[in-house]
Computed example of a mutant assay.
Amino acid sequence: MTFRTLEKVAPPAAVRLAERLWCTVPRGPVRPFDVPGERFVVPVDGRSVVVESWGEGPIVYLLHGWGGWRGQFAAFRQPLLDAGFRVVALDAPSHGDSDAGSFGRGRGLLPEFTVALTRVVEAVGPAHAVVGHSLGGAAAAIAVLDGLRTRHLVLVAAMADAIPYTRDYAATFGFSERTRVAFLSRLELRVKRRMTDFDVPVRARAAVSPLPPALLVHDLRDKEVRHSDAETLVAAWPGAELRSTEGLGHRRILRDPGVVAEVVAHLVGTPAARPEQALEDVNA
């Protein structure tokens, strides 16, 4: 009823509310890694992004999804270390221990995930691989399409394009197509980018420069990000491979030993996984 009333008496207010709700980060428990790493801060546009690091070797960056935090990758830490990688995990703006983003506390923006990842890589060192979950997977793919260099990209339960989900969002909250289009236009002004910039399959098909090989892992019963997103991504991204699971859902997939082993084996199975060669190849 709120949106129906606002659309009648104050359409601009309905648009502002739609934008705020879309950008509101869901609250949840934030648990640290079981074994603390070296914690430090990387400044991003005047705000602090918290980063945690373990080990030495080729760097694997871990980027959580919407409403997540770096500790969600706890199951990946030791297997990656055992495989000879350095593990670097970050909290996106308005998530975990990092400062609030430009939209204020409790609200986040996809481009800020992308910028934070890029700045952390610039500060810490070349990426052998980036592993992104959910919205963090989309952000990692966009960062690569924007020019971030990495040997490998792993997308776990990643969203292909946010636009279809805004239609689901409008249906859930009961606001009109006019409000949906207007709130997206308002969001474009806020982030200073067109929404089409975040359509990963379209941009991957149009990419001129070679893209790194991608491994996609997605559950067939994921209720938050449709499995069809993974199918669309793997069809659009050159050299991409898809591994489908069943019954792990959207978040438990990050804790599954089989999924972790699959990702680590994928990274170890390449010649560049040798520490002394990987850094050299990335810098070539």
Rank of each mutant, 00 (worst) to 15 (best):
R243D: 04
H218I: 10
A139W: 03
L80V: 14
T232I: 07
V60P: 04
L184Q: 14
S98N: 09
L80F: 10
A139I: 03
A204F: 13
A13I: 07
R203G: 11
R31L: 15
G104A: 14
P275C: 08
G104K: 11
I142F: 11
F173P: 05
S209C: 07
G65N: 01
A75T: 01
A278M: 10
T172E: 11
D45E: 15
L17V: 00
P111Y: 00
V144L: 05
T24K: 01
L216R: 08
A170G: 12
L148A: 12
V200H: 04
V25T: 06
F183Q: 06
V234Q: 01
Q277E: 07
A123M: 02
W22H: 06
A143F: 00
A230S: 01
G68K: 01
D91Y: 14
F33E: 09
G137D: 11
P58D: 12
R39W: 07
R221T: 11
P26M: 05
H64T: 06
D97N: 11
H95T: 03
D45Y: 07
A157E: 13
F33L: 14
H266F: 02
E241V: 10
T5Y: 09
P29S: 00
L242C: 06
A75K: 01
I142K: 12
F3H: 02
G247D: 08
R226L: 08
F175A: 09
S176N: 12
G46A: 08
R243T: 14
G55F: 06
D197E: 13
R193T: 12
Y165P: 09
P238D: 07
V42D: 04
A157V: 12
F85H: 05
R27Y: 00
L184A: 08
D199H: 14
T172F: 07
T196Y: 04
H95A: 06
L145K: 05
V88T: 15
R193S: 15
V121R: 04
P111A: 02
M159F: 10
P257I: 00
D45Q: 12
V154K: 00
V154H: 00
A157S: 15
D168E: 13
R31N: 10
G247S: 09
G106Q: 03
F198M: 13
N283F: 07
S102C: 06
R16N: 01
G239D: 01
G258V: 14
E52S: 10
A92W: 03
R180I: 11
I142V: 15
D161S: 14
P93W: 03
G174E: 06
Q72K: 06
A273P: 09
V208D: 15
D199L: 07
G101K: 12
A214N: 08
P93N: 03
